[in-house]
Design a protein around this nucleic acid. Sequence first.
DNA 1: TTATGATATGCTCATATCGAGCATAAGGAT
DNA 2: ATCCTTATGCTCGATATGAGCATATCATAA
Lengths: 298, 298
Amino acid sequence: MSGSADPIHAELIAVVVAVTDATPRVLTLLDGSALPAGPLESAHRSLQAGLRDRVERQTGHPLGHVEQLYTFADAGRSRAGRSISISYLALSSETRARLGGQVSWQDWYRYFPWEDRRTTHDTPARIEPGLRSWAGAEPTRRARIARCFGLDGAPWQEELALDRYELLYEAGLVREAARDGRPAHGDFAPGDTLAADHRRILATAISRLRARLRARPAVFELMPERFSLLDLQRCIEAIGGQPVHKQNFRRLIESQNLLEETGDFANGPGRPAKLFRFRSAIRDERAMTGSRPPLARP
Amino acid sequence: MSGSADPIHAELIAVVVAVTDATPRVLTLLDGSALPAGPLESAHRSLQAGLRDRVERQTGHPLGHVEQLYTFADAGRSRAGRSISISYLALSSETRARLGGQVSWQDWYRYFPWEDRRTTHDTPARIEPGLRSWAGAEPTRRARIARCFGLDGAPWQEELALDRYELLYEAGLVREAARDGRPAHGDFAPGDTLAADHRRILATAISRLRARLRARPAVFELMPERFSLLDLQRCIEAIGGQPVHKQNFRRLIESQNLLEETGDFANGPGRPAKLFRFRSAIRDERAMTGSRPPLARP
DNA sequence: TTATGATATGCTCATATCGAGCATAAGGAT
DNA sequence: ATCCTTATGCTCGATATGAGCATATCATAA
């Protein structure tokens, strides 16, 4: 069951996310062209410990909550021998970082312009022709396009960010596809690339985060100690890439019982907003309130 | 960014699931004491290919749909040097297997008796005292217990299978905890163990499967070509470990548009049931219909 | 042949949830 | 004082969900 195996190389890759000024940002190296990454060493007690060590050494940025994303091993893209990439998502606050060198925070929509639909909704117009030409009359492809990009009457689903990226890759509409030797189809979609498969890993992180936040906006790692409801709404909108109905968002927050008032108010234009903080019980444990009741009772 | 790394050993572990006679079963080795597993070799083109190769060689069972679960690397549990375990979930049909030796299908509730609530609902009664004594007056622990096991008014949530297992592990109520040198707390919970951390991996698979099926019962890999709605309901109930309201289940299925009638009927006691099959569009692509519309429109 | 039990299938109903909009409150700026 | 801006509370209709009633259609036993 555990015979002789070939030695392999394992790489840890981190997607460190912060939200500042209604912009979701990701920590990058080399002026925004790669994610923090490094080999797993035997000195590391665990995968998470190795990741923390790596990222802190590379960026000087301490990590808070860390969560595993996915493990890749594409033989085609690695160097000699086999290489495994284990990717992680970390939620953080930009203010904690002391950056230097080529370490920087980048707006993640720089790499995925079509994922930001807060102001304009016609972003897919720039990529739709390329997709259509790739699909032709193939019904499966057409259905995938409609589902992923909310065309032909299908609703836009924010958490499909990874599916959208993979569809563009398959259709030869991102530079990574050409780099990997796949046929290109017309113009590339807008947006910058990242080293190796880092853009795919970032797409995985966005999808995961969006799927989690839709149900439960418990993002205290991304928020300051005290904040107004609108601050929190802007953070959620930044990650989801979609505007949120303000009153319904308030209702959602109240029903979840995630916050408590601090008693203070924020001043600015308009009526002062109550300041809130996350309940300590929420911080203690990342999962207290249930999402849904069961289907049937006896 | 990719300096010299220590060579490591990677192990692929498979949870192969089938449902027969309203019983969810998992493919095991050594008379039900381990999951199929084996080292990743450089001959494998990809992780999935390696897994397929391994499982087919060990069990003679070809794999259908395969999906990654989680990557573990607990330094404490491995042999000399570092070892990584990459676990996968595969959905299958028991009939396809030609078993031999110590390869067998096991009812997965053999390892998690408290997860089957189709007949009795008081299973946690056998483990509640141990949990309570472990929690004492600690509010965080008490809240976790209530949430995970549906106590103190909290609803039972089937997809928390992994959380429940990990809670029992932390509380020292499963044998694996004692095996790992953690303090035991009272009697162990009922249920058989598996080798290494295979029971944790199985719990991960159950959670993942339950979370997916709750929204979309597209389990054609687990069903025969043609089946009645009750057959499908029994399959879903087997996996979820909970009874389902029959009429509402039918309504759900209809609204999803997953099935089409074959025109045939099943005979037996009672009124003959229409036989259905999954739409080919669903088989073609594992995600066609959206789950929910977005939160707000412009 | 009729009665009975079993399963299939259709319909109703109360409640919860969700998207969307209206109305009012409370500050600053002109 | 007027207007603009943001905060906050409430309503309303559409839809989803949990639960139950009623009827249809078979096999089998009396």
